[in-house]
Design a protein around this nucleic acid. Structure first.
Lengths: 217, 217
DNA sequence: ATTATATCGATAAATAATTATCGATTGAAT
DNA sequence: ATTCAATCGATAATTATTTATCGATATAAT
């Protein structure tokens, strides 16, 4: 039983949100030559509470030492392992429009262990073409290909109107988890995991904070 | 003093995340012909707790009626107003790479009251060109243009390496809030608002849930 | 007209998350 | 060698968020 398996499910959402933030920060620090770092320093730079940082890090690492802090390389390694960045996750993508093509050409996903194997679309003009080495297939081929490849994760980058049908097709093909970039709520069976990438929510938070800031002055 | 101003700052982050979700759902329902909807029904479809839905909606609306529920159109209007979707927010974008161009060509932002006025980049090959009617300027022009346009929000879609310098330039130009798509933590003065669009965090949550699901079986 | 029921909105209870406190430990300075 | 300061990790207190309960009310059915 791997570390990830033991610990999965017991971590809070807020913590899961912060871990990748720590990771970015730590990589930056490492690249600047730092070897050790304290939770206090992380908290200060990231504007977080030091106890919170320590608690988060305690979940993934036990290399913290009084007076010294954490070994940066160890910590990075611990977080990457914990988040499953080290074992590659194969995925497929549905919808090779602008956003879909952007994701297909983005190479940064490999840093998170994400590997987009192929894409699906209905547009005959692009079927058969490749983007960043990833071939685009007709959605007809979805079920067959997903089953053969043994993929569990699907990315949805189709329009709002087509999202539910694409979702249904993915589930029918055996997909267990969906990363949804379409601005709609997908209705799925109990056991299927949906993670919504919610640009509108993010924007709402930003403009709410800005509004608060402006009305304080 | 507007409704948004009065209420800004007192809404919890989780609620602010859910409101756009309700909005998507309600628009869908409206398009399917629904006129009224109850918090119970929303909760069921969205897999939320009905009391939570009622509490969230109580923040933005007072049109709920026993036995009938909410008038969908009113509710949509209330949420849009509350989230500030009705008053247009002008923004500029820095970094007209793949992601930047995708955002520039996305027309869905207008639904949230977001209007991208212009973009900045350093690549001489694209400076002067237009994407979706939005002109790309050299970053030299940033300060002057932002001041003249009176823009308060900037979107960062440059690479991780260039994010901090772009951020500094935006702040120097007078930007108050930054929507950051680069996978790094930006360090900013106290009064500047940063909202990070964190794909890695989203992915981490997805794969954590999937891991938990798989190890339960 | 009366009754039954679905729903709201308010209040209370329970749970989750954050922040504060404190003793223990390590490494550096005297 | 001893003292001092920084830090960790654990526990406790606080705060935020979610969930449960309940009375009031509007609509529909009898």
């Amino acid at each position: 039983m791997s570390n990830t398996e033991i610990l999965s499910g017991i971590v809070s959402q807020p913590t899961l949100h912060r871990l990748p933030v720590y990771l970015n920060y730590l990589r930056l620090k490492r690249d600047l030559g730092a070897v050790n770092i304290s939770s206090t320093a992380i908290a200060e730079d990231l504007r977080l509470n030091p106890v919170q940082v320590r608690k988060d890090l305690a979940l993934v690492s036990n290399s913290g030492r009084p007076k010294t802090g954490f070994d940066i390389n160890d910590l990075i390694d611990n977080i990457e392992t914990f988040l499953g960045y080290k074992n590659t996750k194969d995925v497929v993508l549905v919808g090779a429009g602008k956003l879909g093509r952007t994701l297909l050409s983005y190479n940064g996903f490999s840093l998170c262990g994400l590997n987009i194997l192929a894409a699906f679309d209905n547009d005959e003009n692009i079927i058969g073409t490749e983007i960043n080495g990833k071939k685009i297939f007709h959605t007809d081929k979805m079920k067959d290909l997903i089953k053969r490849l043994g993929v569990h994760i699907g990315i949805i980058t189709v329009t709002a109107e087509n999202a539910q049908i694409s979702c249904d097709m993915l589930i029918d093909a055996g997909i267990l988890a969906i990363w949804n970039f379409a601005p709609v709520h997908l209705s799925v069976p109990e056991n299927i995991i949906v993670q919504n990438e919610n640009l509108a929510a993010s924007l709402a938070i930003l403009s709410n904070k800005l509004q608060a800031e402006l009305s304080n002055k």
